[in-house]
Amino acid sequence: MASYSTNEFKGGLKVMLDGDPCSIVENEFVKPGKGQAFNRVKLRNLKTGRVWERTFRSGESLEAADVMDREMEYLYNDGEFYHFMEPETFEQHQASADAVGDAAKWLKEQDVCTVTLYNGSPLAVTPPNHVILEITDTDPGLRGDTAQGGTKPATLSTGAVVKVPLFLEIGETIKVDTRTGEYLGRAKED
């Protein structure tokens, strides 16, 4: 397997640290004028999502992690695994609930997600930045009070709960930013 030296470290590079695949978040070159050079690195452990900070001697290297991001269509959940398909090859992959993590609440069948493969199997799932989902539950809309710009919680078809304006009702479809959980607007009718 290839390895990368500290001067090749940059955001997004996938390396092995303490036996776990990690993605480099930040690499700061630290050097006192008359002292030794270090690289102060922040890495996200791709298994746990936790961010580690670690200092290396400049010039040290880390083994590359066999990690790649693939665009895949979400198919279904069989109660235990989430199934995804590569659109070109139709190859299917099953991801555990651990790998899917928080992304689960945004997964709608046929949406295209980014699936991170580690040694060939799904390690993490990133939903599309924007998803269109139906409101399955929310308090009745309050008429005539829309100018106040108040919000209320609404439950969506995938189980996610987001804050929406008061005038929205059950059955409407809305656009949501999955990175922030923010309501972006009513979805246009197809």
């Binding site: 630290v30 050097k31 006192p32 002292g35 030794q36 270090f38 102060r40 580690w52 900070e53 670690r54 200092t55 290396f56 001697r57 040290e60």
Partner: peptide, 19 residues
């Protein structure tokens, strides 16, 4: 949080100074 064992006094001091 180190990935290595510092080689000597000065390396320890440099690490503490910069971090």
């Amino acid at each position: 949080e180190l990935s290595f064992v510092p080689a000597n006094r000065d390396e320890c001091l440099d690490l503490l100074m910069s971090h």
